[in-house]
Design a protein around this nucleic acid. Structure first.
Lengths: 236, 236
DNA sequence: TAAAGAAGAAATTTATAAATAATTGGCCCC
DNA sequence: GGGGCCAATTATTTATAAATTTCTTCTTTA
C-alpha cells in the first residue's frame, strides 16, 4: 500500500520464495523457446527427471502449465511433446501480432505521457548500445539484447490500458521467439534491425500514430519473411 | 480449411479417453465460471479432494493449468485461490473484447463465404428459438442457451483466419462469463438481448462491416454496463 | 516357402495414490 | 512487541496401478 520510494522497473513478482514446480516450469519454458528442446520432441518423464534433477510431481505440474500455454501438447495417456512448428503457425502468429500490437500501440499513443515517452527513449537507447551478438564475426546470441529488445517492444504498447491484451502480446512474443531462434544464426548480420527500431521511435515521438503502427507491423513482417524462407530448409 | 458441410458446433477434441486430471480440470473450471466456487475462495486440497473425489495429484495438475489461464491464482507455498473479480477487470476485459472481436469480425467479413453466412444464419436461428430461462417468470439459467449463444458469437469471428486470436477471444468470453453469472438473475428479463443479436446478424448479411462491428461492441458494452452497476452491491 | 498380419505377453511409460518433508500461521511465553 | 514451539497445510518424493508400445510368435495367404 505504501508508495514505492525507488522508481524501479515494475517487477510483478515482489515476493515468492519460488517453488520447485515454478522453477522447473521456467527452465522448461526457456529450453523450449530457445529450441534446446526441439519442436516435436517427446518429453519423457524419465529423461526430464534426470536432466533437471526433479521428481515427477513438480515436473508434471510444470508440463501441465505449459500445456495451456501451448508450448507443450499433452496427448492423454501417452505423454507430452514439445509443440511443433509450422510455416502456417508462423504466418498466423505474425498476422495476429501485427493486428493486436498495432491496436495496442495506437491506444498507447493516445494515452501517451511525458514519462512514457522518456521511458521509451531510454529503452531504445539501451537497445541501441547493446550488441546483438557476443562475438563480432560469428553469431552468438546475447541474452542481454533479448532482454532490452523485449523491453523496448513492451514499452511501446505498455500504455494501452489492457492487462489481458498485454498478456496476450507477451505470449505471442514468446511463441514467435522460438521461430526467431531457429533461423537467427543465418539471418545475422544481414538485417539492419537497429534502423527499424529507430524509425519506430521517431514516429512515436513525432506522435504520428499511423506511421508508427505501420513501421511496427512492417518490422514484424520482415522478421517473419526472413524466418519463413529459412524454414523451408529447416523443416525439410 | 475445407468448408463444413453440416453447420455444427465445432468440437475441438475428437479423441481422448480423458485422464482424471483433465476431467477435474473441466469440472473446476466450470464451477469457477458459474461462481459455484466463488471469487476469492481458498482452494484447499483437502476440501477439493473430498468434494470432487480425486487424489491430490490430478487435482494439483488441474489447478496448475487453471493458474496459467488466470482462473486460479497460486500463491507459492500457501495454496490456490479462485481469482478475484473487480470492476476494473470487468472494464478491461470488456474493452479488450470490443477491440479484439471488432478486429476479428471485420476480418471474418472480409473472408466471408456463402457457407459461413448460412452457418451464421443457422446459429442465430438456434439462439432465437432457445429460451433464456428455464422458467418463464423467475430466472433459471438455461445451459442450452449459453451453448447456442456462445456458438453464435464464435461463428461471427470464426473466419478471421487466426487460431491464436480465436483462442484469446474464447478466453475473454470465459472470463467475462463469470461476471455475467454474478448479476444474471437481476438483469433478467429487463434486457432485450435478442434484438441486439438480430441486428448484428442483419448488418453482417448486409455486408456492412462498420455497422456490424459497432453493434457487436455496443452489445458487449451494454452487457458490461448492467453488470457494472450490479457489482456495486455484490462487492460491498 | 516366405511374407504379411493378427494376437498375446513383456517391457516401457504414464497416471494416480500414498507417504514424507518442508513451509506457513497461530499461539503462548518471555 | 518479538521469538520460538506446535498445529495445519502445502510441496515433493516414493511407491503403486493403469495404460500403451514393443516385441515375439503364430497363423494365414500368396
Amino acid at each position: 500500500m505504501s508508495p514505492d520510494i525507488t522508481p524501479e522497473l515494475p517487477s510483478q513478482k515482489v515476493d515468492q520464495p519460488a517453488t520447485l514446480a515454478t522453477t522447473i516450469y521456467a527452465r522448461l519454458k526457456a529450453d523450449i523457446l530457445t529450441t534446446r528442446l526441439e519442436p516435436g520432441r517427446k518429453l519423457q518423464s524419465r529423461f526430464l527427471m534426470e536432466q533437471y534433477n526433479v521428481g515427477q510431481t513438480p515436473l508434471r505440474e510444470a508440463l501441465n502449465r505449459l500445456t495451456t500455454e501451448e508450448f507443450v501438447v499433452g496427448m492423454e495417456q501417452r505423454g507430452f511433446y514439445v509443440k511443433e512448428v509450422s510455416k502456417e503457425e508462423l504466418q498466423e502468429l505474425t498476422k495476429t501480432r501485427c493486428w493486436v500490437e498495432g491496436l495496442a500501440l495506437s491506444e498507447s499513443m493516445q494515452n501517451a505521457t511525458q514519462a512514457w515517452e522518456e521511458a521509451l527513449l531510454v529503452a531504445h537507447h539501451r537497445l541501441d548500445r547493446t550488441p546483438r551478438s557476443l562475438k563480432p564475426d560469428t553469431f552468438e546470441d546475447n541474452p542481454d539484447w533479448e532482454k532490452v529488445h523485449r523491453a523496448f517492444h513492451a514499452t511501446l504498447i505498455g500504455l494501452c490500458g489492457s492487462r489481458p491484451l498485454l498478456g496476450f502480446c507477451e505470449q505471442l512474443a514468446d511463441r514467435l521467439y522460438r521461430y526467431r531462434m531457429m533461423s537467427i544464426a543465418k539471418a545475422y548480420p544481414a538485417r539492419k534491425v537497429g534502423a527499424e527500431h529507430s524509425d519506430i521511435l521517431q514516429a512515436v515521438l513525432a506522435r504520428d500514430s499511423e506511421q508508427a503502427v505501420h513501421l511496427l507491423q512492417q518490422h514484424y513482417r520482415r522478421t517473419a519473411d526472413v524466418i519463413y524462407s529459412d524454414l523451408d530448409g529447416l523443416l525439410a
